[in-house]
Amino acid sequence: MTLGPEWALDWTRLTAQAMTEHRAELIELDRQIGDGDHGENMFRGFSAVVAKLDALAEPPTTVGDVLKLVATTLMSTVGGAAGPLYGTAYLRAAKVTMVDDLDGAGVVAMLEAGLEGIVVRGKANPGEKTMVDAWTPAVAAAVAAARDGATPTEVLTAAAGAAEQGAKDTKDLLATKGRASYLGERSIGHIDPGATSSALVIRAAAETAARVAG
């Protein structure tokens, strides 16, 4: 089985639903170590994405078409750092998904491109209590799964589990990038909101893959 534009649409809508359901949680996480707007920003951004999907005249023909629309919409509608960070991640991911439906290796390439976009834009390294700390283990798990011949769904499921663990593990980290870095030592003991929303995005990808591809 491979994952095509239909999956990408389902993934995007489920992500929007997850941002709605976790809006308050993300706001609270960000209030503890940031400016408290991450939940609101992600909710607003993905709501705008869904509105754009609803208004599409032609159905998208590739996964990349969907991801590019997500990228440009998030950049325009998410006010915080998450806008350019997610925007660049989706844009890079779109570039490698513009032709074929995704097999296991295609999913890995998409996730790798997403992580690369976040690193290029945010210049963060693993261990600095950012989105990178969810994406880095997710990509590593995806690479390992694909090497063993896993299906796209299995690759995404492995990535989602690793992203969730990575997000949890940000609790003990000291923030050295982003708004939380102003707090210094006081950032320790709180889970990073960007890593948390990243895990939600990747989990939504895995769940929808299981639905459409099994």
Binding site: M75, G80, A81, A82, G83, P84, T88, R121, G122, G178
Partner: peptide, 14 residues
Amino acid sequence: DLGSAVLTTEAVLD
């Protein structure tokens, strides 16, 4: 000013 102003500007320039 703060961080995301830089990130957003760089994204625009991209």
